[in-house]
């Protein structure tokens, strides 16, 4: 069998863990940010991560 994975390293994946809808995707949908873009990014990512937590814990914990 073809062995792509180095036995001691995690594979690189296109879709990042902890993310459902990336900020970059959301950013394209909203008007230009006049305030602090970092606040907007952080809050989006923190709340988006809750959705990720939900579905992955459905799979892993429940």
């Amino acid at each position: 069998m073809e062995q792509n994975i180095n036995k001691n390293e995690l594979p690189q994946v296109a879709k990042l863990p902890g993310v459902c809808i990336p900020w970059e995707e959301k950013l394209r949908e909203i008007p230009e940010i006049s305030g602090d873009p970092q606040i907007a990014k952080k809050v989006w990512e923190d709340v988006d991560a809750l959705g990720y937590t939900y579905v992955w814990h459905c799979l892993v914990s429940f």
Binding site: I5, L10, P11, P17
Partner: peptide, 15 residues
């Protein structure tokens, strides 16, 4: 199967 396990692994680490 192997590719699926590789795809799941970073997420399971994150959890």
């Amino acid at each position: 199967v192997r590719k699926a396990c590789e795809a799941l692994a970073p997420h399971l680490l994150h959890v």
